[in-house]
Design a protein around this nucleic acid. Structure first.
Lengths: 349, 349
DNA sequence: TTGTAAGCGTTATCAC
DNA sequence: GTGATAACGCTTACAA
């Protein structure tokens, strides 16, 4: 690749003049300017971003951490949508994305990795254990590195997070079930470490209480967003509480698993038992029966995250604040009005 | 962040000694070595990758281009799986991924973007028009930049591609239909520019010929991997050729669209008409009816691509050659034995 | 075994 | 308006 030096030589000027021209500084003779631009074009010159970054301490790069540990797969069902949105708005602002892979680095943390690569900011798309408020996360939060987390409540000078309204979403789901006549509503929750899971649980509880149905903790199992654990929980629940007429699962994938398990148990969905999920992943629409669920706006999750991050990066005075996006109930085929026969059974128990 | 200079001062040695120590050079006194390592740890030192890249001309970064133009979304249904695999093997080798977003850059091409960022290699995950053999693609192919394309036949000194065996996959699909008794088999193809589409078309044609059924070009419509165009093609076909008893679609998404359209037309799948897709995206298993399709091994597509790319990067003598991965027929519920009444109808026309 | 110094390709600070 | 020159943080001859 051609360098600024070559251009300078050919144009018979100094490198600084070339640099100024290329960066559109005002104080440069139109004559020389044109000449330099011409030569740059001929040489098909593009500035070396690495060299520039070194002096400017700015890389126009946004780091991305994915997965449940610092290095696992892109394992969340809607990360693609989120990251796609991040990419779009970051791209429009001139930033590229650096996806960290960081294997076999001994003492590396989110923070050191970011510093090593000199990224201008970072977005966290973690799952499972990765969402636990551990030392590396706290370190990052306090590092001064611009950071936006998806679904993890980090707050700091240069840190905030974006999430869906999980509480309201859960309320919508449970209220829908109640409106359909259900009273014995089981909950397949997420985990005990994430705010996301906790909010969905609270939404479930509160809605039950508000409707004077009461909250029965024995109707709950944690599924940890895994098909297997959700299936297990469903089995246990159905064995112990045969009067259950509806399930609310904290994710669509778990809802699929609940439905399959129910089917194995000889139950029909939604005829015998109603099921609602959470997320509205693509498969939800294709599943049989088409899944009633709470939609998270994945695109907005990502674009909002990117917008805030860019704000933090480019505006020193900007004070980021957490954003909670509305979620929406999507009614499809996996929920139905409670049948009389069940209602009676329900009354009996 | 601490720099090598600071460490040198504290240790009372020169920067070069520090550098050598940190890079595990053999010729350094164990005493000083230990001392330096100790200080580095205390200062929580991590090398500045940007500075290092500048001198070494190596960034340990692999560029990724996504989408149908140089900047559109992550729009292919299985890109996530592919990129996830790329990330895993690249990560194990110590490389991070740089996802290019490149908006508003005037004369930028794949090549200039790669050079500007000094990526060590690049993987192309393009769709639609992006796959057309255009100047920017040829430029990249001849640039000397290590490059692996997914599904685009680029070949060069440092360039190769990875694809699924689309021809064999298509043959499997059509043969399956024929074995089921179908004779009037329509084809909803991809586009006219990609090798992928062409190979699937050839597989369709050849299988028909080999089975002495003959190839009727009027049974073909191009769907351009779009739901709308696939639906349109299906309508046209059914209007003009009512004796069709099976459809082979060049992608699962188009197959879904075909099935929906058929349903709108009052046809049952697979009872009246069989449909097979291509790709085996996640939704295929959830769709109703569960889709019979040709599976591409997305994970291997990505890991093979990364493996080859790393080979090109790290081994100057390595001569990359294109890789074609086996594809596999997954028989599910959208195909069935041709019913007698149709067979007769078919015979009649 | 260690230090000096050049250099990677830019930008930025001064003089001129 | 323009040119030296230092600086960014590191690696790497070459010397000592």
């Amino acid at each position: 690749m051609a360098t600024i030096k070559e251009i300078a030589q050919r144009a018979g000027v100094s490198v600084s003049t070339v640099s100024r021209t290329l960066n559109n500084y005002p104080d440069v003779n139109p004559q020389t300017k044109e000449k330099i631009l011409q030569i740059a074009k001929e040489l098909n010159y593009f500035p070396n971003a690495v060299a520039r970054s070194l002096v400017q301490k700015k890389t126009y790069t946004i780091g991305v951490f994915f997965g449940n540990k610092m290095n696992s797969g892109f394992d969340h069902p809607f990360f693609l949508d989120v990251i796609s949105a991040v990419r779009e708005v970051a791209g429009n602002a001139g930033y590229d994305l650096l996806v960290f892979t960081n294997k076999n680095k001994e003492r590396a943390t989110y923070t050191t990795l970011c510093r090593e690569r000199s990224v201008d900011g970072v977005v966290l798309l973690l799952t499972g254990e990765g969402k636990r408020r551990t030392e590396p996360l706290v370190e990052l939060q306090n590092s001064g590195i611009p950071c936006i987390a998806i679904d993890i409540p980090l707050i700091g000078e240069k840190t905030a997070y974006v999430e869906s309204d999980n509480y309201a979403g859960a309320k919508l789901a449970v209220q829908h079930l109640i409106d359909l006549g259900h009273r014995r509503i089981a909950f397949i929750g997420g985990d005990e470490i994430s705010k996301t899971s906790y909010d969905r649980l609270r939404g479930y509880q509160d809605t039950l209480m508000e409707n004077r149905i009461g909250f029965d903790p024995t109707l709950i199992r944690l599924g940890y967003f895994s098909k297997e654990k959700a299936a297990l929980g469903t089995r246990e629940l159905m064995a112990n509480k045969p009067d259950i007429t509806a399930f609310f699962a904290a994710s669509d994938e778990m809802a699929f698993s609940v439905i399959k398990t129910l089917r194995d148990l000889g139950k029909r969905v939604p005829d015998d038992i109603s099921v609602v999920g959470f997320d509205d992943i693509k498969e939800a629409e294709f599943f049989e029966p088409r899944l009633t669920t709470v939609r998270q706006d994945k695109y907005q999750l990502g674009s909002e995250a990117a917008r805030m991050l860019l704000n933090i990066i480019e505006n020193p005075d900007y004070q980021p604040t957490p954003v909670t996006l509305p979620s929406q109930l999507i009614i499809r085929q996996s929920t139905a009005v409670l049948q009389k026969r069940f209602r009676q059974e329900g009354e009996d128990s």
